[in-house]
Every structure is written in C-alpha cells, then in structure tokens.
Design a protein around this nucleic acid. Structure first.
Lengths: 346, 346
DNA sequence: CTGAAAGCGCTTACAG
DNA sequence: CTGAAAGCGCTTACAG
C-alpha cells in the first residue's frame, strides 16, 4: 500500500486555505495569466504558509514542456569542457531551465543513452565533445527535440552546432609563429576524427602555405597528456628538430613543454616555441605561461542555448562560428626577436 | 490550441498494436511484474516497431519516484570536483538514475536553488563542495528527500556526508615530511570555513606535534591559484624560510611550486619540499611531479550514492570516511636523504 | 496472468 | 476575472 504522502502539499491544499479554486492557484504561478492581483496575493501567502511549490513533473506532463535540457558531456577531465559545462549550467538556470546530465565515455554509448534522455522528456539536447549519429539525430527530430552540438559539428547537415572559429584561431597562431621568425613549424593533431582538430589543422596549414611556409612536421596525439608526450618525443628525436610546435589543445602543449624541457633539456621558447588551444587555467600558470587560443566559452554556450530555444521543429540547422582570440604568453618567441643559435641535433 | 502530438507514441498505441491492454504494456516495462513472457515479447516487439519508450515524467508522477537525483556543484574549475562529478554521473546512470545538475557560485544561492530542485521532485540531493543550511536540510527532510554531502559535512548532525579521511591523509603527509628530515614545516590552508581544510590542518598539525615538531608557519589561501601564490610569497619572504610546505589542495601546491621556482629561484625539493592534496591530473605532470594525497573518488561517490538510496526517512544521518592514499612524487625530499645546505635568507 | 478503472498533481479551454 | 471539468501518460490495486 502506497502511503498517502500527507506531508506533501498540493495545489488543492493551497486553494482551500486561500479560499479559491485550484485553477486560481495554478494561475498565480503562471506569468501573464488572468488573475486578480488580490487573488494572486492570497494564493502566494497561503502557499508560503504551507511551504508549497508547484510540482514541476506534473506541470511538465500537462504542458508537454519539462523545462529540462539534456546535456551530454564526454570528457570532463579536460578542463575546457568543465568550463563549458559550468557556463552551460549557469545560463540554463538563468533561463529557468534545468540540465539533465548524461556522461558518455565512448561515442557509441550515445545510441543507448540519448533515448533515455528523451524518455525524461527533455525539451532539447546539448552535446559537448561528441557528435551523434544521423540515426540518433533523426530520432530526436522525430520527437521534436532540438539538438545543438557544442565544439563539434556533423557533416550530414541535420544538427545545429556552435563552434569556436577553429580555423580562424589556428590561422592567427600560424601568423604569430611566422612573425616570430620560425622556419620549421610542426603541428600536433588531436583526435583525428574530430572536427575541432581537423579545422585547426586546416586553418593552420592553410595560413602557413599562404605565407609560403610548408608544414615542417606533423604528429598526432589524442588530446591527452601521455599520448601527446609520446608523440612529442618522436618529434624531438628527429635529426632536424622543429623550432615551433602548435598543439591542437593546451593539455597536449603542456605535455610538449614538459617533454621538451625535462627530457630534452630544451629552453622554451629559445630552442622551440610551443603553443596550444583552449586557454585553460593551467596555461596561465607561471610554470607554463603558454601561448594559446582562447575560445569564448560564454558566447559559445549562450549561442547554443539560444539556438536550442528558438529552433523550429522543421527549421534548417545552423552552424554558428564564435571568433577566437589569440593569447600570447611566453612559451613562444615574440615577433621580431632574432632566432637563437641553431642547436641542430641533440 | 495545443496540437495533439500525433507523432508521440503512447502506451495505448503499443497496446493496440500488440492487442493487449495498457496495463500489460506497463507491466512489460516493470521488472518482476506479473506478465506472461509471450505477452511481454509481443509488447516489446510492438514498441520497437513504433519507437516507443515509456514517458519517464508520467511514470514519475504516479510512482512518486522521479529517478532523478539533484546534484549540486560549486567549483567545477577545480579538477577534483570535475572528477567527482564525472564519477557521480557514471554511477548514477548505472543505477538507472539521472543527475539533475545545479551549479551554485555562492553558498547562499543554495537557499533559492535547492527548492527548485525539489520542485522537480528529485529523489535525493547530492552536494559537492558546499554545505547547506539547517533550514534547507529541514526542508529536504520534510519533503522526504535524503541529502548527502560529498567532501564536506555539517555540524548540526542532520545531513549524511561522505568525505575522504582528510585528517588521516594529512597525518600521513606529516609523517612523510618529518621522515624527510624537514624541521621548518609550514601549512597553507584552503577556505577557512570548509571542513576539508580544517580537518587537513587538524590532522597535519596534530601528527606533527605527536612527532614533537611545532608547526613552523601557517598561511591561508582559498584553494585557488592566485590567492595561494600571494600567500606563498609572504611565506617565502620571511627571514627564515620553511623547508617544507604542505598545501590544503594541489592547485595551491602548484602555485607554491611556481612561486618558489620562478620568483624565488628555489630548487624543489632541495631547498623546499612542497606537497598538496587531491592528486589532480596536473600533479602527475612532469613539470610538477607533486607529492599529494589521493582521495578515492570512486569509493566516495559510490558510498554517497548508496547512502542516498538506502537512507530511511527518519534515519540517523551517517558520516562515512574513505581512507586516503599518500602519493609520493619528487616535489618532496624522500626519507633518509640528508638536508641540503641551509640557504638562510635569500 | 489480464483488463477496466481510478488516480498521480497539475493546466487550460470553456462557460459563466 | 473565476471555477468545474477534462485530460496529460502512466501505474496499480482490484476483480476476474
């Protein structure tokens, strides 16, 4: 036997105490509803007395709007995504929405997890650090739930996305390194199947070649410290070493700095300039002082939420590009400074 | 006029296709319900065909269990809490629960935000990096929603908590530093009003005094990089410098390392040993190689969720202590090594 | 094992 | 401006 939860106060209780109908109670909580001001006051006072607040679940059932947004996170160990999540949360709250979180380790997890999110009747889905299959996208569309990707996009053109202008940011980095007089410029890619890494590489290499400089070397990491460290070891063991290295994110750039300094005894930036992308907190730490590209997380999350709220059921998906900002610190040689003596092989 | 969402499939649709009643459909989705196996198969097949999955909101309304857990985060910029959140998420998902996230910047935000969480009918509340007032605790209790704090506890003994054995971890650190031959040992506190910082200090100072060593100096940061850096500057500007510094978390220890090396030209650990708490990812980076205390996040989150699930409405709040592990790296002088020549003042 | 019926707590046309 | 009534999509005693 289910106990009648006598300690739970319902709208009918408030209605009785205030001497009005349940409809009136409901209206008191609805912005712009037709209620006399006095009635609303009576209701609010009674509610206060009883400690009442409307059951959002019941409301969601009848309005068909849960006011919850599914938020998918894939890599919270990366401080950049932690920042994205925090900003997203705060902005959703301000908009009167609540984030229902979903953590996925592998991309294929989404196939089983997103349907669960939909079962909770979320009003929309925000996906960070991952993409979704076109099957899944169709499923969401059929359920009338808009989906917005943050920091990734898909090619089948059915899902809206907000990304940093990754190509643009990387182009600025190319210019900065060329201005510093570097001649042997290398790139360390992130996960090869991510649009972020591909766009950064495209922008970087493209701008280099406009400036008549070929890419000197290329390695691939997976956006993580250890894998990046191994890749950098290969890069620095070459007969001819690069004199600059742009990494597709800051975590990898930090690994590069550590390997260059502590394993190869190099001076950064005298022997090699190293830079990253994301401008995470550690980039500003004195021990690294890393030149990076700052993604405007506030604008990105803001745009994503606004897209989610205004997306039309049959509307065309949009891709919003948020400008990047170059953040020059001391891990790269500044423009105009002459090159240090070439050290050749170690 | 609200459109009849004809593209939303309901249990009645599945029932018709399968040739059974809505009750049967419901039972097919309920573990251990009285259904013939054949009936269940028919239902599941029909559901599959229609792309049906039960509306969790409607189910929550009638069962009075939303299967959502409110999760409060306060400081996602701290990688330790990002780790806690990720582990929490994953474990809740495994238990068939969904985290409804709430980000709060200041403690007082909780007073208005927790009621919102309750309005969503969460089955319980998990709070990280923050405490809640006794008023709020009472509110949750009255609503029959258990609350568990992670990494903090309150003194009014009405809310369950899971914390690392902060005092124990700090005691191990005290022993480690004393074994390293340090004589002038300092402590850098975190936020003064947190149980975590207080317990770490209590354990640390307590063990030192058992080993007949007074605390040489004490400063206070707020768990953040910049504030800690300023505190460390004060500490290292003293006439007599400490030869070891234990910081209440890793972020502050990293700030200490940076200041000691780059501003005071000190060698760590030759001139000064520095250690932290949390064992965040950056502690393992070659540039820092920081001795730290590892909190067992898996066990902590596991315990918290289990507490939440088994808490009785009128039950006595529990405080679970999860053992800590000392993680010795190279930012502290190992035991038995003789002290470096005293440098005196700089 | 199964189905008809009541009901979870709310909102919202509808009629007044 | 207000209230009575229907209904959101589901679960669960109840009777068979």
């Amino acid at each position: 036997m289910k106990p009648k939860n006598s300690y739970v106060v319902r709208s009918i209780d408030v209605a009785r105490l205030a001497g009005v109908s349940r409809s009136a109670v409901s209206r008191a909580y609805t912005e712009g509803a037709y209620v006399a001001d006095g009635t609303r006051q009576k209701v609010l006072k009674a509610a206060e007395q009883l400690g009442y607040s409307p059951n959002a679940i019941a409301r969601g059932l009848i309005t068909r709007r849960s006011r919850m947004i599914g938020v998918v996170i894939a890599d919270l160990a990366n401080p950049f995504y932690a920042r994205v999540l925090e900003a997203t949360c705060l902005k959703l709250q301000e908009a009167g929405l609540a984030p229902l979180l979903l953590s996925c380790r592998r991309a294929q997890d989404l196939d089983s997890l997103v349907p669960q999110l939909l079962a909770y009747q979320v009003d929309g889905v925000l996906i960070t650090a991952a993409t979704l299959s076109s099957t899944l996208a169709t499923q969401c569309a059929r359920a009338g739930r808009p989906v917005v990707l943050i920091n990734r996009y898909v090619n089948f053109d059915a899902v809206s996305a907000v990304t940093c202008d990754n190509a643009g940011g990387a182009r600025m980095m190319a210019e900065h390194l060329v201005a510093g007089g570097h001649k042997r410029i290398a790139f360390l890619a992130g996960l090869e199947d991510t649009s972020s890494s591909r766009d950064r590489e495209r922008g970087f290499v493209g701008r280099l070649s406009e400036l008549k400089l070929p890419l000197f070397a290329r390695e691939t990491g997976d956006y993580h410290y250890e894998t990046a460290a191994a890749a950098v070891r290969r890069l620095l063991s070459r007969k001819q070493r690069p004199d600059a290295l742009f990494c597709a994110n800051d975590t990898m750039a930090i690994a590069a700095l550590d390997v260059a300094r502590h394993e190869f005894g190099l001076d950064v930036p005298k022997d090699i300039s190293i830079s990253g992308y994301d401008d995470i907190e550690a980039a500003a730490w004195k021990g690294y002082d890393l030149t990076s590209v700052d993604q405007d997380v506030d604008r990105m999350t803001e745009a994503a939420i606004s897209l989610l709220q205004h997306e039309q059921p049959g509307g065309k998906p949009q891709h919003i590009l948020v400008p990047a900002r170059l953040r020059v610190r001391r891990s790269t040689r500044p423009a105009g400074k002459p090159l240090a003596g070439r050290k050749g092989r170690r």
